[in-house]
Design a protein around this nucleic acid. Structure first.
Lengths: 236, 236
DNA sequence: TAGATTGTTAATCGATTAACAATC
DNA sequence: TAGATTGTTAATCGATTAACAATC
């Protein structure tokens, strides 16, 4: 079974040493700090498989079976889960629905996440209408674009506003996550705005490393990387 | 440190048609097989930084500076490059243009890659019109969709054809890479078709693990994973 | 009880980093 | 020559896997 890189959610890159000098960073013993990005990705994968098993009315699954379906080892499955608790029963395996519920809780999918979209180009459009996000509880509540011709347009029932309107609008009606789907030149400006507004999570599609304070969580998705990695393999 | 690998090396031996006996020579010594996916991604990152430096007329860059711009260590930069050759000059660093050219060659960006798009929904639309791909040399030459209402539509000068037409069309006019942007239910069918046609590279956006022969290179991009990883961090 | 499978510890594997001789 | 920086080796760090006692 081979493994593949699912996606390119890279580590949040660099951060600026914030504010005053000797401010010691919190001990960071929070569980999330200790869990590797690899484990989180695999949890996403387990989650999807469990959804599928549940829809097939499968009651129980062993780490070996789950591993097979995800393309990892059974030890890996058990290890990943063990960071968060004991979800299985020796001799029997895991209850599909219970484990799914547990992972939903771990990943924070048991609530709604409000998101603002920056950039209403074709990528922004695809993200906005991507059904998978809403199914996971991620909702776009605002859309901003710099192009005056797009401003005023409506997607579903959400009106596209100008970048200039973003600050006031988001201050009045805040979001959890800002999604950056603008050209790379303006990506940092949008990030700065989001940070200024106290948004804690940023999903960045611009192929540029963003500078953010370390309390802000950043994930980068770079569509070119997957293709370049393919061409590397194909031309080798 | 981390693993999470490309998809299986393969095809072990390189054939060398030597004289009378055509025998397999060199078991698995192809370079691409030995390079980790992590290194390849960083090469993509170096490449983008070098493009940017070049456009600013920067002549020379040290591993330390490149590392700083990419958010990695200088040892990492030198190590990554050392797998492929000696591109620097001790005491001076790297010539920006030369290093860029070298990485372009390593990543296989010194040629054009023809691609077929499966799924002309909003994601497919975004991918098709994504400028970055063409700039890198990746061209969509075919578009296929199952929806009869879309078939016949034209994007740029390419007509959208039905899935049924794909086999014949691609046999006559082959591609290097198939891009799967269909719902997960049909992803495996498209993959099977591509494999059947001898396409060696697949970029899959469906959130489903595809079963493919070892000689086919697969990269998965799952948009949900990045968001789920953000919600994990934000809710921790 | 006998068989199955978890949760966890210890061993292994591989990626990153520190350090430095080579050399511009 | 003195200073800078590469290419590479060895040390470190951390992720994965094998193995097994616990226990259903």
């Amino acid at each position: 079974m081979e493994k593949e890189f699912e996606n390119e959610a890279q580590d949040s890159g660099k951060f600026v040493a914030s504010g005053s000098r000797d401010l010691v960073v919190e001990p960071d013993s929070s569980l999330t700090e200790k869990i590797s990005e690899f484990t989180v990705r695999r949890l996403s994968s387990y989650y999807r498989i469990l959804l599928s098993l549940e829809s097939q009315d499968v009651q129980t699954v062993s780490s070996a079976r789950l591993a097979e379906l995800c393309g990892v080892t059974s030890a890996q499955v058990r290890k990943d889960l063990s960071y968060f608790g004991n979800f299985g029963t020796r001799g029997l395996g895991y209850q599909v629905t219970d484990l799914k519920t547990a992972i939903v809780g771990i990943l924070g999918l048991d609530r709604k996440w409000m998101m603002a979209l920056f950039g209403a180009g074709s990528l922004g459009h695809a993200l906005f209408f991507h059904d998978g996000f809403r199914q996971d509880g991620f909702y776009f509540t605002h859309i901003f674009d710099i192009d005056p011709r797009r401003v005023g347009e409506k997607w579903r029932d959400i009106e596209i506003l100008s970048f200039a309107a973003a600050k006031e609008k988001l201050a009045a009606d805040p979001v959890d996550i800002g999604v950056i789907a603008v050209p790379e030149e303006s990506a940092q400006d949008i990030a700065d705005l989001l940070i200024d507004l106290g948004v804690n999570g940023i999903l960045n599609f611009a192929p540029r490393q963003l500078t953010i304070p370390k309390n802000v969580r950043l994930r980068n998705v770079n569509l070119a990387v997957a293709l370049e990695s393919l061409s590397f393999l194909l031309s080798g």
